[in-house]
Amino acid sequence: MALKRSLYQHIRQVVPLRQRLTFGGLLLLIALANGLSLSLPVPLLAHGALLKYTHTAAITVQAVYDTGQSMTGAQITVYAPDNPARPWLTGISDAEGRFSFVPDPDLPGTWSVRARHAGHGAMVHIPINPEQPEHSLRKQGYTAGQRALMAASVVWGCIGTALYFSRRRTS
């Protein structure tokens, strides 16, 4: 008993009052937390929640510039087949220029999606047929070789014109 008492006095001398109080408070908090978790029912179980899922075909468009750069933050407008003048859905593309939406299955036909960013933009027309689901990855644009050939043909046309008009007149 004397030993216990001297130990207490020793702690009292060595450990300052504030630290002792903090330590005690911490113990109290742990005890309270234990008691609460044991005594109170877990509130999550009070309302039964269920997650149902259905498998639907969504459409993801990706807007890129012809340089290959993603059109980040482009304004996407989706037009339903029944009214090509009024936007059905609007949104903003993500950092990779992607935007996904689930078209209304009751509206078969050609859906149109337009991307627009600072006056640049493109439009894609997506045919949707409920009986014949189409799983395809469509891509617009040409390969580098095709582009080079197309550019070369136009340039050759210009050179031909220049040569034609620069020849000397015979008359």
Binding site: A151, V154, V155, C158, I159, T161, A162, L163, F165, S166
Partner: peptide, 14 residues
């Protein structure tokens, strides 16, 4: 001026 214009059209196009 047409030959010069044709060549510069090509430059503008490219």
């Amino acid at each position: 001026g047409i030959p010069k214009a044709a060549l510069l059209t090509a430059a503008f196009f490219l």
